[in-house]
Design a protein around this nucleic acid. Structure first.
Lengths: 215, 215
DNA sequence: CAAAATATCACCCAATCATGTGATACCGAA
DNA sequence: TTCGGTATCACATGATTGGGTGATATTTTG
C-alpha cells in the first residue's frame, strides 16, 4: 500500500462502471483504491475499517442509495470527502447532496482525467463540480441580498433597531432596557413600525421582517 | 464579424495580460473579442453599444473596479454573463461577486484552454469556477438546512399546523376558528409548542420556526 | 391489553400587548 | 424661522397572551 496515495472507496452498483473506475484508479499514480462496493448497506463499518480520504459515490443504487450513504458518512466520519458521481443533474439531488455535506458533484460523463483531478481537488480542500452543477448551486444562494426593508418600508434607524430586537424575541420591557428608553417609547416606536409594515401584532411584524427584510 | 461566435469583452488593467487575452480570444474559433478595456469607467455605455455575451472581469482595477462594474452590468444588462477573473481568492470578494450576480469566478492562474472552456460554459448556462472557489461558495450555504422541526423538535401534526398559523400572524382566536377548536385548546397546544421549542412567546416561536423549520 | 402520546376543553390570574390621545424636544430642510 | 420628521415620554383601557392545574376521550404503540 502506497503511504502517500489518496485512499479512495467507490460506491457504484453498475459492475462495468465499477470495474472501469477500479482499473482507472489502480493504474494512476497517487491514487489507491481501497474498496469498491455495490451499495451503501455496510458503509458505516467500511468507513471505520478502511478510513478513506475520498469517497466516490453513485446516487442511484439498490437497497441503500448514495444520499443515505452520504448522510451516514457525515454522521460517523465527517472528515471524509465525499464526491457524488452520478447521472442525475436535477436540483433536488444536487441540493440534497450539497446540503448533506458532499464536497463535489460530478456527472458520469466526466472524462477520466478530469475525474482524477477532481479527486485530487476534493482531497486538497476543493469542491470540484461541473459548471452546470455550480450554476444550480448558485441558484440556491439568496437571490438578491436584500437592501433591507428600511428602503422599501422606510423604517427609521431606531425603528429598524427595535424591530430587530423584536425578531430576536425581546419583550417591550427588554427592548426598553437594551435601548435605555422607556417602555412607552418602545410602544410608540412599535406602533409606527406596525403602521409602516401594515401589520397589527408582533407575530406578523416578526414574520414579515424575517421574510422580506433584515433579519 | 462572426455571427455565431461568443461576443466577449475583457476588463483588465494590466496591459500585458490584456494583450495576451486578446490574442488568445482572437486566435480561437467560436470566440470574438469585441472590446478590451482598462477599467469599468464607461461600462454602462459599452454594454448597450457592444452587447456582449460574456464579460471577463478583473477585480482590482484603477478608478472603477470589477465589483462595481459587475453591479452596473447587472443593473442595466442583467442577461450578460460575467466571469470574474482575478488573483483574489478571499471569501469577501468571492461572496460579493457571487451575490452580485457573477456566473463564474476564475483565478488568473487558470490555463488558457480552461479559460476558453469556462467562457463557453458561462455562455451556455454553466457557472465555471475553480474547485477552491466552489468550496468557498458551499461554505456560504446554510450549514445544515434542517430536516424540519417536527423531526428535531418532534412537534405533532396538530402542533405543526398551529405553529404555521401562528407564523402567518393569526391570533389564538383566529386559530381556534380555522381549526374548529376552542381557544383554550389552542392555548394548550401552543403551551406545548413553547415547551418543545424552548421559547416563551409567540415572537420567539415564530422567529425560531422561520429560521430553522417549516414555514 | 395497558401505557403513552395526542387532542380536546375548562378555569384562573398576572403579565404583556395594541391602540388612542397628547406632549416635549431636537434637527435639518424649505 | 417655520415645518416636517424623528425620538422621547405619559396615561388609559381593553384585548391578548403566558403559565399553572387538571380533566376526558381517542390514538398509537410497546
Amino acid at each position: 500500500m502506497n503511504p502517500s496515495a489518496i485512499r479512495i472507496i467507490v460506491y457504484e452498483d453498475n459492475p462495468d462502471l465499477r470495474e472501469s473506475l477500479s482499473v482507472l484508479l489502480r493504474g494512476s499514480m497517487g491514487f489507491e483504491l481501497i474498496g469498491a462496493f455495490v451499495n451503501c448497506e455496510r458503509i458505516a463499518e467500511q468507513m471505520v475499517e478502511l478510513h478513506p480520504d475520498v469517497v466516490l459515490m453513485d446516487i442511484d443504487m439498490p437497497v441503500v442509495n448514495g444520499l443515505k450513504g452520504l448522510k451516514t458518512i457525515k454522521q460517523i466520519a465527517p472528515q471524509v470527502n465525499v464526491l457524488m458521481f452520478t447521472v442525475f443533474e436535477d436540483n433536488e439531488n444536487i441540493f440534497e447532496a450539497i446540503c448533506s455535506g458532499a464536497v463535489g458533484y460530478l456527472l458520469k460523463r466526466t472524462p477520466p482525467v478530469r475525474l482524477l483531478e477532481a479527486i485530487n481537488d476534493a482531497y486538497n480542500g476543493g469542491a470540484p463540480m461541473t459548471s452546470s452543477v455550480a450554476r444550480k448551486v448558485l441558484q440556491m444562494l439568496p437571490p438578491q441580498p436584500r437592501v433591507a426593508d428600511n428602503v422599501s418600508y422606510k423604517l427609521t434607524e431606531r425603528e429598524t433597531e427595535i424591530l430587530n430586537l423584536l425578531v430576536k424575541g425581546n419583550s417591550y420591557k427588554m427592548i426598553a432596557d437594551k435601548c435605555g428608553i422607556s417602555m412607552d417609547t418602545v410602544r410608540s416606536h412599535i406602533k409606527k413600525i406596525y403602521d409602516k409594515l401594515h401589520v397589527h401584532s408582533q407575530t406578523e411584524a416578526v414574520a414579515k421582517a424575517i421574510h422580506e427584510n433584515i433579519v
